[in-house]
Write a protein that binds this DNA or RNA. Structure first.
Length: 430
RNA sequence: GGAGGGAUGGCAGAGCGGCUGAAUGCACUGGUCUUGAAAACCAGCAAGGAUUAAUCUCCUUCCAGGGUUCAAAUCCCUGUCCCUCCA
């Protein structure tokens, strides 16, 4: 959420900044609401003040043993007037809140202009796609040879699910373990195990709600429809991990906070019909190792580079060619101020595909989360900045390993950093 | 499944329907003292919002949501979470 102060004092600038990401809103409506909010709030507060003073006077008179009847009569209608004023004010406030909550974050200056992923800007390239002296297969054909099974998954659950059996399941797990170890032991993150079902407040905190409910899987306890009994399957580990810090005043000496967690992610993929229907690329359920950092405002963009490097480190250790792109404003996620995508080379598609998304949210999430620390210099609480990134999406990493490490006979060489996690195995054979 | 107890500032922890935005301790900040530090002593110190050039002033907030009352941290109801006991 953007700051209300900013919306109040600087709507024009906000509107202009959001235009960069093709988001527009009605400035006049907001200004009108803002004006009536102001009038109503002043009115309501005056009435409250009146009531407070009168009530105190009654208390004093009573203590002094005076007759309070005339005083009581004087406040007789106050309650109703106050209720009316309050109700009006609340109605206006919630309209303003609704608008404010639906507004995306303002893109950072370094975010390129553009409407779609075609306008993303390549920042760097690492590694070189291999030349294969045979016809390469994609991960679905390769996976089939090694125990990746979409038909059985379809029987159990439906489309966009997968089953893995045998060594390929272990390879999938090996990737997860390697990533967790790397981030917790080398990069200094604290490992976190978190719930996979979360309440609506948490999704509000990271920005998935109220706007993107359609993307989520929703559960009702005992079939109840009541809001309090609703839990959602997490669309990313970002949600529970970041929300660990919701409503907290962090000790300055504990900053930066760095967490890594391995969770499944569940996405309805509403609106993605027909896209990436083949294979593991776009699933309702997939594993991800997620990095989250909470830092002081002045550190956040330096941290974005660092966190992205941590994700890149996994790709480099696995010797997978990739490129790093700076997302253009039109392709930026709702809560992000700036995002780097890492795209891994997939020989089966002859294309770079997203495997990690690393974002800086500035104080956009922190404001909703009420995540702050006390600044010693000013002695005032200040919002912190949040960042996260996949380090990496495990399913897609498996895809990349299968396709990049394939051999003519369909066997898969195991990247050397994973061999220990595979009981010393160096090749996946049928 | 049943019966109780609890949730208060960064933390711990008092709190009588009006004098309580809240005692006290810790932490923190400033000062005195000291070569310096520690200790001791003195002072300050919740958040959010309205208004203001700023000060001032005002409003809201004691888990959440309702209710009673002229007036609620305090009384009543519902919910959430924590704890204890019984089965």
């Amino acid at each position: 959420m953007l700051s209300k102060k900013q919306l109040r004092n600087d709507v024009e600038a906000v509107a202009k900044a959001l235009q960069k990401r093709n988001f527009s809103f009605d400035i006049k409506t907001l200004n009108d609401l803002e004006n009536s909010r102001k009038n109503n709030q002043v009115k309501a507060q005056e009435l409250q003040n009146l009531r407070n003073t009168q009530s105190k006077a009654i208390g004093k008179a009573k203590a002094a043993g005076e007759d309070i009847k005339p005083l009581l009569a004087a406040v007789a209608n106050l309650g109703d007037d106050l209720d009316t004023a309050k109700t009006e004010l609340q109605a206006i406030q919630s309209k303003i809140d609704e608008i404010a909550l639906s507004m995306p974050n303002i893109p950072h200056d370094s975010v390129p202009e553009g409407d779609s992923e075609d306008d993303n800007v390549e920042v760097s390239i690492w590694g070189k796609p291999k030349d294969y002296d045979f016809e390469v297969k994609d991960h679905v054909d390769l996976g089939e040879l090694h125990g990746l099974d979409f038909e059985t998954a379809a029987k159990i659950s439906g489309a966009r699910f997968s089953v893995m059996t045998g060594k390929i399941a272990r390879l999938h797990r090996a990737l997860t373990q390697f990533m967790l170890d790397q981030h917790s032991e080398v990069n200094g993150y604290t490992e976190a195990y978190v719930p996979y079902l979360v309440n609506s407040e948490s999704l509000m905190g990271t920005g998935q709600l109220p706007k993107f409910e359609a993307d989520l899987f929703k559960t009702h306890l005992h079939g109840e429809e009541g809001e309090a009994k609703t839990l959602y399957l997490i669309p990313t580990g970002e949600v529970p991990i970041t929300n660990m810090m919701r409503n907290t005043m962090v000790n300055e000496k504990d900053l930066p906070l760095k967490f890594v967690g391995h969770t499944p992610s569940f996405r309805s993929e509403a609106g993605a019909y027909g896209r990436d229907t083949r294979g593991l690329i776009r699933q309702h359920q997939f594993e991800k190792v997620e990095l989250v950092q909470v830092v002081k405002a002045k550190d956040s963009y330096r941290t974005l580079e660092e966190l992205t490097n941590h994700a890149e480190g996994i790709l480099q250790a696995l010797e997978l060619p990739y490129r790093k792109v700076n997302l253009c404003a039109g392709d930026l996620g709702f809560s992000a101020a700036k995002t780097y995508d890492l795209e891994v080379w997939l020989p089966g598609q002859s294309a770079y595909r997203e495997i990690s998304s690393c974002s800086c949210f500035e104080d956009f999430q922190a404001r909703r989360l009420q995540l702050r620390y006390k600044n010693k210099d000013t002695n005032k609480p200040e919002l912190l900045h949040t960042l996260n990134g996949s380090g990496l999406a495990v399913g897609r990493t498996l895809v990349a390993v299968l396709e990049n490490y394939q051999q003519a006979d369909g066997s898969i060489k195991i990247p050397s950093v994973l061999q220990n996690y595979m009981g010393g195995l160096s090749t996946l054979t049928q």
